[in-house]
Amino acid sequence: MTSDGNGLGADFDQWKRLADELTEALAALERGESGARERVNELSLALRLRNDLPFQHALY
């Protein structure tokens, strides 16, 4: 795969960065690190707003 996600460009790169950061934040939450819950919430919101898929609204 190319660095731009096979033509998806910056959108894929941004999604991948957020997903990687969320993975790290979830690990920090599991370890009980201070501030981890807030970081998970921030990153989850950023991913939801970025994707803005119609079915997500029905889940909340």
Rank of each mutant, 00 (worst) to 15 (best):
Y60G: 07
E42G: 00
V40F: 11
L49I: 03
H57T: 02
L59M: 04
M1P: 13
L29W: 11
N6G: 11
H57I: 06
W15A: 03
L18W: 07
F12S: 00
R37F: 02
R50G: 07
V40Y: 08
L18S: 06
G5Y: 09
K16L: 10
Q14P: 15
G9F: 06
R39E: 04
H57M: 01
G7M: 06
L8T: 13
G35S: 09
L8F: 03
D11L: 11
N51Q: 15
D11H: 05
E38F: 07
D52Y: 05
D20N: 04
A10F: 01
A27D: 14
E30Y: 14
L43Y: 10
S34I: 13
L49M: 05
S3D: 07
S3A: 15
F55C: 00
A46H: 02
Q14K: 07
L43T: 09
A46E: 02
T2Q: 01
L47P: 07
G35Q: 08
W15R: 09
L59R: 14
L47E: 14
L29I: 12
R39Q: 08
R50V: 04
A10E: 14
N41G: 11
R17T: 02
R17Q: 08
N6P: 02
L22T: 11
Q56Y: 10
P54Q: 06
L26I: 05
A27Y: 14
A46F: 01
S3W: 14
R31T: 15
L47Q: 10
Q56I: 00
W15C: 01
R50T: 07
G9R: 08
A28N: 14
N51C: 11
T2H: 04
L29A: 07
M1A: 11
A58M: 14
E24M: 02
D13G: 07
G5S: 10
Y60D: 12
A19S: 12
R37P: 12
S44W: 11
T23D: 14
D13H: 05
N6C: 15
L45P: 10
Q56S: 03
A27F: 11
H57Y: 06
E42M: 04
N41P: 02
R39A: 08
A58W: 13
D4Y: 03
G9C: 05
E21R: 07
L8E: 10
L45Y: 05
A10Q: 08
Q14E: 14
G7P: 09
L8H: 15
D52T: 10
R37W: 00
E38R: 02
R31H: 13
S3Q: 07
Q14I: 05
E33D: 15
E21N: 12
G7V: 10
D52P: 01
S3M: 13
R39W: 13
Q56E: 06
L45N: 06
D11Q: 10
Y60S: 01
E24D: 15
E33V: 01
Q14T: 08
G32R: 00
F12Y: 12
E38A: 15
Q56V: 01
G35K: 12
A27S: 04
G32F: 13
G35D: 06
S34R: 08
Y60T: 13
E38C: 01
E38W: 01
